[in-house]
């Protein structure tokens, strides 16, 4: 079995970002970068599947700048077997990234593609669904539990707005990981040393496919208006008054 796991290089979730000076981009100068947390969960799940089987290869892929090899190296140190970097310095839309991943899918023919459900930078929550659509595959989004069967299907539990939903999907399929799918491990030192020897195959985006034209343009990035500073209350009585008053306004 082969599992393809796309991973994205994003700003570390603890970093507070600002618009760039021209207001057209996000200022990431010197910001700490990391593997998108949802992608990390996808990597972990792929490795757990690999550990439960005799033959399983986990291939991680990133579409991004040369430095995204840092994030691929993290995935390799967690247990992925090899990595592919589709290199470009452009800021790409999910549609374009999914098109590149579609090409990689055709080259690698995996049985399963596991992605994070969204990247914490642009919060689009699209790439997995678009990829599934482009490949014509079944999709299982927002997964909190995955059970592989031996009959060429997979059962996924999805976290939806009114509870949980279990779907049976034909393989190959595209799955996106939600928060509670697993808790990712930390890489051990020996694993990190071993990962340095694992291969990262670098292909320029233009060598994979012609760069599609962008469909969207960012006209501006701004900081939303802040809330007014609040008032601290000293007693329960005050709080009760406030709640009663607020509730009356609501009625």
């Amino acid at each position: 079995m082969k599992i393809l796991v796309p991973v994205k290089r994003v700003v570390d979730y603890n970093v507070k970002v600002r618009p760039s000076n021209d207001g057209l981009d996000v200022d990431l100068t010197n910001a700490k970068m990391a593997v998108n947390p949802f992608c990390e969960i996808a990597v972990e799940e792929a490795i757990r599947i690999k550990e439960s089987r005799i033959d399983c290869e986990v291939v991680v892929v990133s579409v991004g700048p040369a430095k995204a090899s840092d994030q691929l190296r993290v995935a390799l140190s967690l247990g992925a077997d090899r990595a592919i970097l589709i290199e470009t310095n452009e800021n790409l839309e999910p549609l374009t990234i999914a098109k590149a991943l579609h090409k990689v899918f055709e080259q690698e023919s995996p049985d399963l593609v596991l992605l994070g459900k969204q990247a914490i930078d642009f919060d689009n929550n699209q790439t997995g669904q678009i990829l599934a659509g482009l490949c014509g595959l079944a999709q299982g989004t927002f997964c909190s539990h995955i059970v592989l069967s031996e009959t060429g299907t997979i059962e996924v539990t999805r976290e939806v707005d009114d509870g949980l939903e279990v779907l049976r999907l034909k393989l190959p399929a595209v799955l996106t990981a939600d928060l509670r799918l697993n808790e990712p491990r930390f890489a051990s030192l020996p694993q990190m040393m071993k990962a340095k020897k694992k291969p990262i195959a670098v292909t320029l985006f233009a060598d994979l496919m012609p760069m599609p034209s962008a469909r969207t343009k960012v006209l501006g990035i701004s900081v939303p208006p802040a809330r007014k500073p609040g008032q601290m209350l000293a007693s329960v009585e005050e709080l009760v008054e406030i709640l009663k008053l607020t509730a009356e306004v609501i009625e």
Binding site: V26, T216, K217, G220, I221
Partner: peptide, 11 residues
């Protein structure tokens, strides 16, 4: 975007 820390105007 960015967990609502920023707003993007998109065309």
């Amino acid at each position: 975007i960015y967990a609502g820390d920023l707003l993007a105007r998109i065309q």
